[in-house]
Amino acid sequence: MKVLSIGSDRNIFSGGSEARERIIKYGKFAEELHVIIFNSRFANHGSPFTIQKISRNTWVYPTNSKNRWFYIFDAYKIAKNIIHNSKFMIHNSLITCQDPFESGFAGWLIKRKFKIPLQLQAHTDFLSPYFRKESWLNKIRVLIAKFLVCRAGCIRVVSERIKNSLSRSAGCKLRFTVLPIFVDAEAIKNTPIKADLHEKYPHFDFIILMASRLTKEKNIGLAINAMAEVVKKHSKAGLIIVGDGPGRNSYSLLVTRYSLQNNVIFEDAVPFEILISYYKTADLFLLTSNYEGYGRSVVEAMAAGCAVVMTDVGLAGEILINKKDGLVVPIENGEKLKDAIISLIENKDLRENLVKNARDIFNFWPSEGDYLKKYLNCWAACKKQKTSF
């Protein structure tokens, strides 16, 4: 099978990156894999990216667009050349798009032209009201996605939450595969500790860890607001926020406003091996997002043996069951969040029980080989589907 993939993860251009290695593994299951990546021609430190052959049968193509408004048009032009030069055949080819928005629309245009089956992927809960409220662009994206989903051969989603919300809202019968991004739980469990948060921050007697991009949807401000209340009762509790993003300055100002400089510490993003050590030496992992497709960091924390408190997003209710494997609180509810954090600070037995139950999940966790077989089956099933144009 020849596969054309369209997405926006520019990390694929970086040698040794997780995204690149993942694409190389997917390519082993295809006759050829061609990956088109949306990018601005000035995004790579002022220099355009170049076409790269990253394995025997896998190529990556940058759009090098003038700006984001040309992404779809440029991807379409590149795809036409790939399909002609590599002689894609209708019966043995597939277009897969990493989102049902801009890349999905480009994929649909290519499908209409060449009659090649189309798979859409949904990695975020775009039907959440918080997604729509975030920006006018997201409102347009929701409209695009609703237009496209009935015109795809199949849809790969990363959680039951997305599947259920799409099933309720779509005006057609959809063909789903629920397949999250793979988390190598066994490797996480076996990774030795190389950095101990309690040794690094010995003035804290309870360490809460967050690891994410510092962006609006992650709602880091909710965690900071909750910490302002937590420290009134537990003055030696500390919140370590690991990650980069455009919200760093505004969150730092919020910390200053609450006089939490001694309790809230920002760290730049760290290598994944170090992050695993952070998971293993923190007392609690916290996720406060307004929406998530899945919540991969939660799975990583659970595999590392860290108790979890999270908002009701992504895998909550599917992988992590409230009061069994972790604690789940309503979105944007600072009072419930504060209560959940304090309950785990004060109740070590509860914390240890949640960790034990969470670890039991990984007794039945798929291996990487099993996961890749499911991914191939997902492609193969979609290739056979007939859809409207």
Rank of each mutant, 00 (worst) to 15 (best):
I207K: 05
V157I: 13
C382N: 04
N363A: 13
S135W: 10
N322G: 02
L166H: 13
C154Y: 02
T387C: 14
S159R: 02
N249V: 04
V231W: 03
V178L: 09
S159D: 01
I90M: 08
Y251N: 14
P48L: 14
E273C: 04
K189P: 03
A304S: 08
M1E: 10
I6Y: 09
F88E: 04
C378T: 09
V270F: 03
Y26H: 08
G7D: 07
I23V: 13
P330T: 01
R10P: 01
A282C: 14
V60E: 05
F13L: 01
G317Y: 01
R168I: 11
K356P: 00
K173N: 13
R132G: 09
F105K: 13
F389W: 10
S235H: 07
D360M: 07
T215P: 02
Y278S: 02
I140P: 02
G238C: 02
G15Y: 13
S8D: 15
C172E: 14
C150Y: 01
F272C: 01
S259F: 11
F206R: 03
G293Q: 02
Y291I: 03
I193L: 12
D339K: 14
Q121W: 03
M210Y: 02
I83A: 09
D125H: 09
L197M: 09
F285L: 09
I321T: 09
I241G: 03
N353P: 00
L143Q: 15
E335S: 14
A211N: 03
C378L: 09
W136D: 11
N64S: 08
K200R: 15
A152G: 08
R175N: 15
D205N: 15
A106V: 06
M89T: 13
I331G: 04
H234K: 09
S289Y: 00
I54T: 02
H91G: 04
M210Q: 08
R351E: 12
H91V: 11
V183H: 01
E332Y: 06
L120V: 04
I37V: 15
V355L: 00
K163A: 14
L143N: 12
T58R: 05
S165D: 11
